[in-house]
């Protein structure tokens, strides 16, 4: 199918660009390490139980890491007018949106996978709850969908670096809350039943945001 073929072509191109420049994954992973250290200064170690603190620190770090990545993924298309190049290709503009979302998702996911062992050490986690295998991709995908749309949107404003967080944070809070709560439940070993409702919240959000993104992206990127 030409729809998915075009998406795969754009994603592959994004991966190739990243492979050349190594601009996103390396720098963002380093940023994540830095954030974890900062959080440990902010909350005096020992005052807050780790199992309370870990999920929040984890997801807010990932959210900020995401914001950096989305901005990069979208701004790659800005140099040399490449976005126009994509818009001139014989497919709907929703293809660009889906491809860029997938690229952002993959980059953030890689950063997460790189930094998880680090989290495990710093927060003294001795086991890896299998529920995270579902929670992390679902939440990351949700954040990537809105992040990509809003990064493209704030590219067209002055103060783009400020506009992205201002718009993104209030809108992703529902997804982040679901991720924090379900990660907390999973880490404290409360089992599948306590995680499941939050999984649904994330699934619903991912779908709603994806639909809105597909319908509005074209209007946002058009000059």
């Amino acid at each position: 199918m030409s729809y998915w073929r075009s998406i795969a072509t754009i994603v592959r191109k994004d991966l190739l660009v990243e492979l050349r420049g190594k601009e996103i994954i390396l720098s963002v992973s380093f940023f994540v390490f830095l954030m974890v250290f900062i959080f440990n200064f902010a909350f005096k170690p020992g005052t807050i139980p780790l199992e309370v603190m870990t999920p929040g620190v984890l997801w807010f770090t990932f959210l900020f890491a995401g914001m950096l990545s989305f901005q990069r993924v979208v701004s790659t298309e800005q140099e040399n007018g490449c976005l126009d190049g994509l818009m001139l290709c014989p497919h709907g503009r929703d293809v660009i949106f889906v491809a860029k979302t997938i690229s952002s998702f993959l980059f953030v996911l890689v950063v997460e996978v790189i930094s998880l062992p680090f989290f495990a050490v710093v927060f003294n986690l001795s086991f890896f709850p299998v529920e995270l295998l579902l929670i992390i991709p679902l939440a990351t995908f949700g954040i990537s969908i809105i992040g990509t749309l809003l990064a493209a949107l704030s590219m067209n404003t002055r103060l783009r670096e400020v506009m992205l967080p201002i718009l993104l944070i209030p809108l992703v809070v529902p997804v982040v809350i679901a991720a924090v709560e379900s990660t907390g439940n999973a880490l404290s070993g409360e089992g599948w039943a306590s995680v499941q409702p939050w999984i649904w919240v994330m699934v619903i959000f991912d779908i709603v945001f994806l639909v809105i993104g597909l319908l509005t992206f074209e209007h946002v990127i058009e000059e």
Binding site: S2, R5, L16, N80, G81, D84, L88
Partner: peptide, 28 residues
Amino acid sequence: VGVLLHEPLLYNRLTALENLQFYSKMFN
């Protein structure tokens, strides 16, 4: 339709060939 704009519409970090291969795939 083929279009040439002011800007080159090419990715800086890729070679000319990689850019052209990318667009060829997009246009099938």
